[in-house]
Amino acid sequence: MSDTPEERMDVSMSINGRTYRANIEVRKTLADFIRDDAHLSGTKLGCEHGVCGACTVLLNDSPARSCLTLAVQANGDQVRTVESLSDGHDLSPLQQAFREQHGLQCGFCTAGILMSASALLEENPHPTRGDIVDTVSGSLCRCTGYQTIIAAIEQAAAESVHDSSSTEDD
């Protein structure tokens, strides 16, 4: 067995505004660092091949697949995960819209989709349906059939402009 994978390094990064420092194997993925070292288990692993999007986090405000990113690559960076979205009392408007539109069933894909959608809405508060589909088509969901996810993101976008009520997916 090669020794390289077990080489260790010190890392330090901010996750959801709190600094985490550790000495880790260089081969450890960011996803495993977030889940096992920072004990934030909201970020999920659906494939570990960079395809399903469940592990999506915001790395310096941009969506990143944490299963394909090494933790050491995020050294000194700012990471945001699903745990950062609500204030600890109420769901955020985006989360609430997912709830109202039934945009989740098992919830396993949801963290990744919420993070992709958050990045989209931060960059473009008035996305078209096409913008939403382009962004979120990189995430797989096996339960919902996607339409209610689109509706939820549309609702959150609409509400951020004016307090309008929910829209229907069909």
């Binding site: 288990s41 909201g42 979205l85 769901l91 989360q95 709830r99 039934h102 919830g107 963290a111 919420l114």
Partner: peptide, 21 residues
Amino acid sequence: VLRSEDPRLLSGRGEFIADID
């Protein structure tokens, strides 16, 4: 009726098997 499961699942507070240590 809105689902009682959702607040946990939406906030990353679900507890799936990989989350149990």
